[in-house]
Amino acid sequence: MSTLILRLEAAPDFDVDLSGITPDALKDKRLPDIRRLKLRQGQRDMALGDLFAIDGTVGGDELEIHGACTRLHHVGAGMRAGQLRVIGDCGAWLGSEMRGGTLSVRGNAGDGVGASMRGGLIDISGSVGDYLGAPFPGAVSGMKGGTILVQRRAGRRVGDRMRRGLVVIGGDAGHGCGSQMIAGSIVVLGAVDSGVGTGMRRGTIALAQAPAGLGPGFALNGHFDLAFTQLLLRHVGGLKSAWRSRLSGIASVERWVGDAGGLGEILILS
């Protein structure tokens, strides 16, 4: 057992930026140095040890944050390797610009989960806010790689401008799912709100439930039993047992193509 544990004893009454507090970044540090790590709290700096009781073993590649709350932003941002487990809810920009490793949350997360991420796995047991896998502010594209799994619902604009990677939403997804997608795959097992794939250039959005309607840029391409669909479903089904049963028995897809250049693809699973 070589897990380092950060325990939030009392929820702060201010927002805290946890960028840089990742298993790979803490791996080679000594406990006193970890306690002294500088955090951004509103307009001032503070030390990690001021906020968290820190114990466990240093030197490993596992980190746990217990008692997380929505005041904690940028949790796991920029993470490159290792395991980060969060128990509790998190604020915005969880796993943004992440490059590798596994970040799991037992709870909910705010807006911008996995924004501009490049690799690794984010697995959230609850729901997330808007702009999952979308561009981090200032970036020209959304996620460029990796996998994001959300077991319950996601807010608006899932995968906005994403370039590569896989997003699976176990529950419902809000307005504009896959908006301006450049490439990559999004799977939604619940219901989707309006505006699916608006402005998408390429990429695949697979929907377990038919949307109420699609934008005028999409046209029905036909019903298919694509080898790709079976591979995708087998892969997604392998990620969570609940999803496997949800996806079993799907034989063919209704394929719609659009939006701007006609290369975006919406697959309705049936």
Binding site: R40, Q43, R44, D45, P137, G138
Partner: peptide
Amino acid sequence: MMLPEDHRQDLVARGRHPRM
């Protein structure tokens, strides 16, 4: 406005300067 990254990567806390 176009370069939030320029600001994110160079934050000056209150204390270092009279105002952040």
